[in-house]
Simulated scan of single mutants.
Amino acid sequence: MSIIIFGTGGHAKVVLDTVNAAQHEVRGVVDDRWSLPVWRDVPHLGSRLTLPNIVAMHTDAAWIVAIGDAEIRRQVATQLESLGAVFATLIHPTAIIGTGVQVGSGSVVMAGAILQADVQVGRHTIINTSSTVDHDCRIADYVHLSPGVRLAGDVCVEEATHLGIGACSIPGVRIGRYSTVGAGAVVIEDIPSHVVAVGCPAKIVKRKEKNDAD
Results as ranks from 00 to 15, higher is better:
152 A>S: 14
162 H>L: 13
133 V>W: 02
125 T>V: 11
108 V>M: 09
71 E>D: 09
176 G>C: 09
127 I>K: 03
120 Q>C: 10
129 T>G: 03
107 S>W: 02
109 V>E: 08
75 Q>I: 13
143 V>I: 10
143 V>D: 05
73 R>I: 11
158 E>K: 13
72 I>C: 05
133 V>I: 15
73 R>F: 10
140 A>M: 06
70 A>F: 07
145 L>W: 04
80 L>G: 02
168 C>H: 08
74 R>D: 11
94 T>W: 10
98 G>S: 04
64 I>M: 09
133 V>P: 03
109 V>K: 03
58 H>Q: 03
166 G>C: 04
93 P>N: 04
167 A>G: 01
148 G>N: 12
141 D>L: 05
74 R>K: 14
150 R>K: 11
160 A>H: 02
156 C>F: 12
122 G>F: 12
151 L>P: 05
116 Q>V: 02
91 I>Y: 05
67 I>N: 09
123 R>K: 14
84 G>T: 09
120 Q>S: 13
172 G>L: 02
70 A>Q: 08
145 L>M: 07
123 R>D: 14
100 G>D: 09
159 E>C: 07
95 A>L: 10
113 A>G: 12
100 G>E: 08
77 A>S: 15
89 T>I: 10
156 C>Y: 11
60 D>P: 05
66 A>C: 10
121 V>P: 07
94 T>K: 12
164 G>S: 08
105 S>M: 11
107 S>M: 04
161 T>E: 06
78 T>M: 05
137 C>K: 05
141 D>E: 05
164 G>E: 08
110 M>S: 12
113 A>D: 13
133 V>E: 01
79 Q>T: 14
87 F>A: 07
77 A>T: 07
170 I>L: 12
158 E>C: 12
113 A>Y: 13
129 T>D: 01
170 I>R: 03
103 V>S: 05
66 A>F: 11
151 L>G: 05
117 A>H: 12
135 H>D: 06
146 S>V: 09
77 A>Y: 01
62 A>M: 12
151 L>V: 07
127 I>E: 01
77 A>Q: 01
152 A>E: 04
98 G>F: 11
147 P>K: 07
153 G>D: 02
111 A>Y: 02
67 I>V: 15
132 T>P: 02
84 G>H: 06
164 G>K: 06
102 Q>N: 14
144 H>P: 01
145 L>F: 07
102 Q>H: 15
93 P>G: 06
97 I>H: 04
64 I>P: 10
136 D>A: 04
57 M>G: 11
130 S>V: 11
111 A>D: 05
68 G>A: 14
140 A>G: 14
58 H>M: 02
119 V>M: 09
85 A>D: 04
87 F>V: 10
103 V>D: 00
116 Q>Y: 00
94 T>D: 11
166 G>K: 04
116 Q>D: 14
133 V>Q: 02
108 V>D: 09
87 F>M: 07
82 S>L: 08
162 H>W: 13
80 L>E: 03
70 A>Y: 06
128 N>G: 11
92 H>I: 09
99 T>C: 05
130 S>M: 14
89 T>E: 00
69 D>P: 03
157 V>W: 00
163 L>D: 02
109 V>R: 05
62 A>E: 15
118 D>T: 11
58 H>Y: 14
84 G>W: 10
61 A>G: 02
102 Q>T: 15
164 G>R: 07
130 S>T: 15
173 V>K: 06
176 G>L: 11
140 A>I: 07
144 H>Q: 13
136 D>N: 14
171 P>V: 05
138 R>F: 12
118 D>K: 13
120 Q>E: 04
